[in-house]
Design a protein around this nucleic acid. Sequence first.
DNA 1: GAATCCACTTGACAAATGATAAGTTCGAAG
DNA 2: CTTCGAACTTATCATTTGTCAAGTGGATTC
Lengths: 188, 188
Amino acid sequence: MREYIEQISGKLPDEAWILYQQNLKAMRSEKGQLILGLHKPCKTIWHMTKGAVRKLEMDNGIEKTTHFYVAPKVFTVLHSALTGEPSDLSIISEEDCEFLTLDIDQLKILYQQSIYIERVGRRMAEEEFIEEFSMRRMFLKLDALQRYEYLEKKHPEILRRFQLKDVATFLGVTPETLSRLRKLRLSV
Amino acid sequence: MREYIEQISGKLPDEAWILYQQNLKAMRSEKGQLILGLHKPCKTIWHMTKGAVRKLEMDNGIEKTTHFYVAPKVFTVLHSALTGEPSDLSIISEEDCEFLTLDIDQLKILYQQSIYIERVGRRMAEEEFIEEFSMRRMFLKLDALQRYEYLEKKHPEILRRFQLKDVATFLGVTPETLSRLRKLRLSV
DNA sequence: GAATCCACTTGACAAATGATAAGTTCGAAG
DNA sequence: CTTCGAACTTATCATTTGTCAAGTGGATTC
């Protein structure tokens, strides 16, 4: 996990890493298990060392997938974690997973104790922002088929590890439409 | 500008603000002027104190608006600023504007000198991430009419200060479609 | 191994959006 | 004042995508 974080933030002094690591707790989840339930405030940063999870929202009774995460990956529900408000997103294990968890309030203390940890937070937020923007650009520039092909090319592991119905809502189309697009692509 | 930044980052010690402020340079632009040209590396953080700008990308010869910014606002092209690569986005003045500019390389030095400035960077990145995600969710949940109504409700100033053709591409539809949606909405 | 469930696919039709072309309005330039 | 150009609108038709309904296949359970 240190290696993964340093890849984003740059090299950390041992002291900073030790301080950070002291506050991590091990946790597991089984496939199908809810990591964060709807309407619960998100108080945790998950450092996923094994497995895969999916973030989703409900829209008139229909699940819409907003994110796929595959280990190693650090994630949270930021707008809930920062404000303490109930999360409008849920997180579910799509495989058996292993995590190191970090409490949000603890992280805020760590930010005050180490400029290096503050930097980790900045660099992660920057990278997440860039990724979010890149996904929004998909919707501005590409039609449904092109979005699927883009996903297939850039994140082929998502197609291997998650269900197509969830890939469909992630791409902003119905599962029926995705099915038709895939057929169309094969015949060309 | 200090007040605007502190609203995001929390209160700054005077020393941190003075350090930051010393590196800002005043700049103006006229309506229609290009602030950042396509394919130029983005080396600047703009602190817009007056005016309004638009960020856009080209897609097969068609302009697609990705962001509207209205003063007071701090913005850059982050993926270019971080890597030094040419920007695939341009920025244009939609009104006469006034800025305080900050050089990216200088900012990186400031990050090392003050945990408070590092914190400003983190908090801004976090807020931008949340805003980006909120915009992507529009595309996952709402059809074109609902996206327009959402924009009208949440950011009415955008409809007042920018052109409808640019609002259209920002919403992911053609100007003709936006025109039809607006008519439809009036008749209801 | 039979029954069941759920993901995935397919088909037919409806609705939303795009593409093209033409008309209108308004402000800027001469 | 007149002309011009660009933004915006409107109309028509083509294409894409959604909706609803039914069918297929594979995995799980009893």
